[in-house]
Nucleic acid binder design. Sequence first.
DNA 1: CGCTATCTTGAATCCCTTCAAGTCGCGTGG
DNA 2: CCACGCGACTTGAAGGGATTCAAGATAGCG
Lengths: 242, 242
Amino acid sequence: MSFALHNHLNCGSCPIRERAICAKCSSDELKTLDKVKTYRTIPAGQVAAYRGQELSYFSSVVSGVATLTKTLEDGRVQMVGLLLPSDFIGRPGRLHAEYDVTAITDLTLCCFDRQPFEKIVETTPTISLRMLEMTLDELDAARDWMVLLGRKTAREKIASFLEMLVRRTTANVAAAHKVNIWLSREEIANYLGLTFETVSRQLSQLKKDRIIEFVDRRYFNVMDMSALHDATGDDADGSVLY
Amino acid sequence: MSFALHNHLNCGSCPIRERAICAKCSSDELKTLDKVKTYRTIPAGQVAAYRGQELSYFSSVVSGVATLTKTLEDGRVQMVGLLLPSDFIGRPGRLHAEYDVTAITDLTLCCFDRQPFEKIVETTPTISLRMLEMTLDELDAARDWMVLLGRKTAREKIASFLEMLVRRTTANVAAAHKVNIWLSREEIANYLGLTFETVSRQLSQLKKDRIIEFVDRRYFNVMDMSALHDATGDDADGSVLY
DNA sequence: CGCTATCTTGAATCCCTTCAAGTCGCGTGG
DNA sequence: CCACGCGACTTGAAGGGATTCAAGATAGCG
């Protein structure tokens, strides 16, 4: 349950420098953070933390993809977070993990020792304000996700998921080519509140409808972006507008 | 669309003083907030803000109950927030409302003028840290809600909803008596991602099972708290543990 | 007292799940 | 090189839980 440690990397060349909790930090503040940080890598498929486990550090995703999931007592699983580079893991003030954290790909984390980091958050507005901003973004995303889970059909859920992937992975590339799905059919099902069979069927249907095509099982191209959006059930420009 | 204004009330006697965004404020900081605050009341049933509407103020719920909802283009509605006293409405840095806000009961809001309030948040750690804490709480609640929407059966959803009502309204009163449901059957349905007919049927079933009883349509008693919990699908002590 | 909105209950339908049987792709070892 | 095995995925058929459609019951309010 302890993972490979690495030497310090220079924050200046950090790939998530502009977007992570340290985005607004001065070089002095970075130095303070630097003293309490460690890099860890977690191989694909491994569980980085189990719900209830005591955690001695918080972390930012530097590279790779991870998921947050919750499991009901009879084994039903619901994904509640999809973590991409720059996303933060953990919660200041909380000792135990609230969610299972699983590495989907090989994962590199920039880890901050718990107690000193909590102090730093309390005394460094550039960090706490950035965390507030990121948490509000996550809350908005969670609420869109709630609409999806509560009110959308299987087809709309799949279309919404694919559109989200396009949006989050191809920032502002107009023609999205070869988008990585990252997740297995079962993980997509846990994201969308469906079974993996339904996920498979709906993906096949979108393919049959010429809205997407598959490069292989884990990569797809969008053939008709506006048809994909129409299939999501969202209005014209959805949550991007405001 | 403009609501009744009130004179200033004294923060010292404010019912949400201990729990709202100002919970940790010094008296000096309260004075600063006091300069930019106004009270508004909104009658039950009225919409306080529509998604997309430009808002000139943020606010805290002082008394009453409000909901946040999102509507899909064909009219399907999903509730994404249930606001009780001390909850905050709005998002610093955002000009437009992201959700429809509806007053369920008569609602009293403590409103903060947008621009000065944003400045205050940026320069007052006691406020921004409290907002961070409250936002993290909301995010956790949203994620539990996602599990409910994605993976629970109708019966489990209803049981979870009733248990939440008991928890949020009767803080630490052991024997919960006469809990107010606040919401109509249709609003409960929008909370749980169901139809109002299904809500009605499941409530009748829980009554038939002697787990709850109704005082009238809007108030209920829990007759068997552990049976209610068993019906939620959550494990032993659920999200309260950590 | 009667009107109306809200709620309850029943019956039929449908979408997603469950159960089951393949297919595909890839690494391993003969 | 290819047979083999295994996990991931696809597809089909049957079943079930929630929805839809419809008819009444109840309660709040003039």
